[in-house]
């Protein structure tokens, strides 16, 4: 076990735990954001650099600070390590810089993007970015392509997290897409037009942090915040059968895996569950799924509101913001 202090909060975690996962065990605002790391996909992480943190003490044995900010998702803790995330101005400054880099070529076409409302890049920008853009250059564009009849690849929106490549490597029998070219010309592609066609390819959509890979069966059907997510399951011979149905009235508009608090699917689902079962009769519906994230979708208050809990949360926030009053509207719910 290793004792580690993150932003002044101490926690004991098993050896080998990464700083990010130690922070997630603490929870709350001190958890670094992550755009490329994905717990259930081996070897992910380290690329997007939004989870950079400062290690101001390496370990009890060797208390020297680490010379550079480190990717918290890939750096294991050591006993006595002291980490700064939101308490380090350097980290916040670097993160702001990374967000700016990620947005330099991102199309900001949120109004027409299916991912809007549940987009990790939107959240990241809102929480860590700046309000103004300093770039005046034309953004990099690619042609949209269909990789198979169920998935749309909109490369222009891609932030090169590589998660979909790891899905193909780790969940499917043969990877036919990958990262081509180099530098700022890099792209996710099949090189020759080829369908990504196998039982688990749909998970590429769930792991994509932005709107680069979207579900063609859901395309333009609804903004996500107008749909109701419901936990549901069915007996499936290929996967766990545990899904979230995104419903409008009695219609199932799309089916996804169940994402946790950090937007990660722990149990991947097969394409049959995802694409072939859009009738409520096919599913045993559990109940509404709580989306506990900052995204626009979590503003969709279809759940029964626990007024006491809400009051408490607001009080907490008011204290946290040191007297800054929250706007009136945030307390009114329909």
């Amino acid at each position: 076990m290793a004792k580690v202090t993150i932003d002044g909060i101490e926690i004991e975690v098993p050896d080998g735990t990464t700083i990010l996962n130690a922070a997630r065990q603490i929870g709350g605002k001190i958890v670094p954001p992550a755009m490329c790391y994905y717990t259930s996909l081996k070897d992910t992480g380290g690329k997007c650099r939004v989870c950079l943190v400062k290690v101001s003490q390496g370990s009890a044995k060797d208390p020297r600070p680490m010379p550079k900010l480190v990717a918290s998702c890939r750096t294991p803790v050591a006993d006595g390590m002291v980490v700064q995330n939101i308490t380090s101005p350097d980290v916040l400054e670097a993160r702001k810089g990374v967000v700016e880099f990620l947005l330099l070529n991102h199309p900001i076409d949120c109004p027409i993007c299916d991912q809007a409302g549940e987009c990790d890049l939107q959240d990241l920008t809102y929480e860590h970015g700046t309000e103004v853009t300093r770039t005046e250059f034309e953004r990099r564009t690619f042609d949209k392509i269909d990789i198979g009849d169920k998935i749309k690849l909109h490369m222009t929106r891609c932030i090169m997290c590589y998660r979909c490549v790891y899905v193909a490597d780790q969940l499917t029998p043969e990877r036919v897409h990958g990262v081509l070219n180099r530098g700022d010309h890099s792209e996710i592609s099949t090189y020759i037009e080829k369908a990504v066609d196998n039982d688990f390819s749909g998970n590429m959509i769930d792991v994509c942090p932005v709107g680069a890979l979207t579900d063609r069966t859901f395309r333009f059907k609804s903004r996500v915040w107008f749909t109701k997510p419901m936990d549901a399951h069915r007996n499936c011979s290929k996967c766990c059968g545990k899904v979230v149905l995104w419903m409008k009235g009695d219609d199932i508009l799309r089916v996804t895996g169940r994402k946790d608090h950090y937007g990660e699917v722990r149990e991947f689902i097969c394409n049959e569950c995802r694409f072939e079962h859009k009738n409520t009769a096919d599913w045993v519906i559990g109940g509404p799924r709580h989306i506990n994230r900052h995204s626009v979708i979590s503003q969709n208050h279809y759940e029964k509101v626990d007024l006491q809990k809400l009051r408490k949360e607001i009080d907490r926030q008011i204290v946290f913001q040191k007297g800054k009053q929250l706007p009136e509207t945030s307390t009114s719910h329909s």
């Binding site: 043969e174 990877r175 036919v176 897409h177 990958g178 990262v179 081509l180 070219n181 180099r182 099949t190 090189y191 020759i192």
Partner: peptide, 25 residues
């Protein structure tokens, strides 16, 4: 060409995408 890359993939018994990824890098 794609044919040449696919041929190299077959010589090495690896997947074509592994060749495309390397060639374009």
């Amino acid at each position: 060409s794609v044919e040449a890359m696919d041929y190299v993939a077959s010589v090495l018994n690896i997947k074509p995408i592994e060749v495309y990824e390397v060639v374009t890098f």
